[in-house]
Design a protein around this nucleic acid. Structure first.
Length: 377
DNA sequence: AATCCGGGGAG
DNA sequence: CTCCCAGGATT
């Protein structure tokens, strides 16, 4: 050992790896060494808890077992597989990356940093995670768990969301990565953060590195990391139109290719400007979206949902088509949909909720831990 | 450097 | 309710 820092580094990695060998969680993506599967798991786990991602992991890989099957699938199928998982740009990025991997990398997930970071959806964290876990490169994978753990181990009092602090933590993590078993070391930190060094009420009595923890030494484990409180989010209003044709099919539109819930389907309609009358707003937004005139009818109910940056109340009215044929002016596409069609189109959570209001019995179906669809949620 | 981008779990 | 989650892209 050259100095104290090297000694601590050595002890941390040795203790964490020993703890991991005995206590690691049994997770589906740990039963494979296939870089494709590890890649998919890492994308799904971005800002998503392990238990949430597991059923989607099984379902996605059953639908797209190889990067080739993914690359040649229709985007709509990929989005349908992702339905309800959120952050749908991840699905579009996976899909775009799969095409690049097939065309430029001969179907193999790149095994070095410069190449893999060019793929859409793969940033510093995900690159480090894939390269360390799938290929054994000694790179850090600094996620929320690792930042919190390092913050406590070294009693860092700066707010975690500070950009400078994030850079320092990245360097600190890089200095700790062992040459042997870097993937296990990274996953050990994640498991430690998920099961012991949790955001709230860390269980230091079970921690394998409590003896090296500066926060623990100064009884700051419930104080660190310092976080800035989240600002309040606005409450927005939206209106949706239930327009049926003579066969009872429902008029639905595909959202634009970028922005909120990109390329998913929904009922016609849109946001209500502050102070604007709901039924006028609905007629105007349907006119702008599809170029058709409608008369608003019976009120059918409302649902609430919270997004990252605003809370939404979505109200719905029956509408009658007065004149004009639908054109995709403010949307990618439109179609008449039967109940079966609605099951097969990718829709967001709140649109499934509003469908459940107007079509009782056709509400969204959850999937179980193995990725199979349950009859009813 | 700020903002956008989902949905669900835990307390 | 609030906070957080195996973050990345865009502006």
């Amino acid at each position: 050992m050259k100095n104290d820092a090297d000694k601590i580094k050595y002890l941390l990695s040795r203790r964490l790896l020993a703890w991991y060998r005995r206590n690691q969680r049994s997770l589906p993506w740990r039963k494979t060494s296939d870089p494709y599967r590890i890649w998919i798991s890492e994308i799904m786990l971005q800002q998503t808890q392990v238990d949430t991602a597991i059923p989607y992991y099984h379902r996605f890989l059953k639908a797209f077992p190889t990067v080739f099957s993914l690359a040649r699938a229709p985007l709509q199928d990929v989005l349908k597989s992702w339905e309800n998982l959120g952050y749908y740009s991840r699905a579009r990025n996976i899909y775009a990356a799969a095409k690049v991997i097939v065309e430029k990398f001969d179907g193999r997930i790149p095994d070095h940093l410069e190449a893999i970071k060019t793929l859409p959806g793969i940033g510093q964290y995900t690159a480090g995670a894939i390269l360390s876990i799938a290929y054994g490169h000694a790179l850090p994978a600094v996620d929320g768990n690792v930042r919190r753990i390092l913050c406590r181990l070294f009693a860092i009092r700066n707010p975690l969301d500070d950009a400078q602090e994030q850079k320092r933590l990245q360097k600190l993590a890089a200095s700790l990565i062992p040459v042997k078993h870097p993937g296990d070391f990274n996953q050990a930190l994640m498991d430690l953060g998920a099961t012991i060094c949790k955001a709230k009420n860390p269980d230091c009595s079970r921690c394998p590195v409590a003896g090296h923890c500066q926060a623990r030494l100064h009884n700051l484990q419930n104080v660190l990391p310092i976080t800035v409180k989240t600002p309040a989010i606005p409450h927005r209003q939206a209106a949706a139109a239930v327009i049926r044709n003579s066969k009872g099919m429902l008029l639905v539109v595909q959202r634009p290719a970028s922005g909120l819930l990109a390329s998913l389907w929904k009922l016609p309609g849109g946001f209500i400007k502050s102070g604007e009358d709901m039924e006028n707003s609905l007629r105007h937004s349907v006119q702008e979206e599809l170029g058709i005139s409608v008369r608003t009818g019976k009120y059918l109910g409302s649902v609430n949902h919270t997004y990252t940056h605003f809370r939404l109340t979505l109200q719905t009215h029956e509408c009658r088509l007065l004149k004009g044929n639908p054109n995709p002016l403010g949307c990618q596409n439109w179609r008449w949909a039967s109940p079966t069609d609605l099951q097969n189109l990718p829709l967001s959570k709140i649109d499934r909720m509003i469908l459940a209001v107007i079509l009782p019995g056709a509400d969204s179906k959850k999937i179980d831990k193995k990725g199979k669809r349950l009859q009813r949620s």
